[in-house]
C-alpha cells in the first residue's frame, strides 16, 4: 500500500471569480482554442485577489482563506509563477477546480447574470432577488470541494468526513445532506 500524501485543507473563498479565464491576443501565435492553457485553481485566484487587489498582507490573507500563513505563501508563489508563465509564453489561463468552499451559499441568476447569497438559511431560494427570474442555481465549485467544515475531519458528528482517506472518494450529496 502506498503512502498517500497529506490531505489538503479546504480553502475558503469569499466569492467566485467573475470569469473563467483569459486568452492572449496579438503576437505571432496567439493562443488558439486548442492550445494548451495554464490552469489556475480557485484558491490561487483568491490568493492573488486578496494579496494584489485587496492589498492584504500574507497574514491577513491567510486568515481570510482559513489556511496557515506558510500555506498561503505557497499558494501565492504558485499563482505568480503561473501568471508570469502565461504572460511570457502567451498561454491561455483558465480558472477552475481547487480545494475550496465558499464562506456562504452563493447563487447565480441566468436572467440578469448577478450573483447573490442567501442570508436566511431557513428559506429556500426560488427567485432572483434582483430581477425575479426563477432561473437560479446554487454555485458549486468545479470538482473536488465539498461543503464546509471539511477541515474538521476529526469531527465525528459529520459521518462522511471522519472516514475520508482520499478526497476523491467524497460524495458531494452525502456531505451536503449531512450538513443540513
Amino acid at each position: 500500500m502506498s503512502m498517500s500524501p497529506r490531505r489538503k485543507i479546504l480553502r475558503k473563498l469569499t466569492s467566485p471569480p467573475p470569469i473563467k479565464g483569459f486568452r492572449p491576443f496579438g503576437g505571432d501565435k496567439p493562443g488558439s482554442d486548442h492550445s494548451e492553457s495554464i490552469v489556475l485553481s480557485f484558491e490561487e485566484y483568491e490568493a492573488m485577489r486578496l494579496c494584489d487587489h485587496e492589498m492584504l498582507n500574507h497574514h491577513s490573507a491567510s486568515v481570510a482563506m482559513g489556511v496557515s500563513r506558510p500555506t498561503f505563501t505557497r499558494i501565492y508563489a504558485s499563482v505568480r509563477k503561473k501568471v508570469a508563465r502565461a504572460f511570457v509564453e502567451a498561454k491561455k489561463i483558465s480558472i477552475e477546480g481547487g480545494k475550496i468552499y465558499y464562506d456562504s451559499d452563493w447563487y447565480t441568476c441566468s436572467g440578469c447574470r448577478c450573483i447573490f447569497n442567501n442570508p436566511d438559511k431557513d428559506k429556500a431560494v426560488e427567485h432572483c432577488p434582483l430581477c425575479g427570474n426563477d432561473a437560479v442555481a446554487q454555485l458549486h465549485d468545479d470538482s473536488q470541494s465539498i461543503g464546509k467544515r471539511h477541515r474538521k475531519c476529526r469531527n465525528t458528528r459529520l459521518g462522511p468526513y471522519s472516514k475520508c482517506e482520499s478526497n476523491d472518494q467524497f460524495q458531494t450529496s452525502n456531505i451536503q445532506n449531512s450538513l443540513k
Binding site: 466569492s15 447574470r113 448577478c114 450573483i115 447573490f116 447569497n117 442567501n118 436566511d120 432577488p129
Partner: peptide, 12 residues
C-alpha cells in the same frame, strides 16, 4: 452582513 442578515447581490 451575514450577521445582520443582509443579502449581497453582485452585479456582473
Amino acid at each position: 452582513l451575514d450577521s445582520q442578515r443582509i443579502r449581497m447581490i453582485v452585479i456582473q
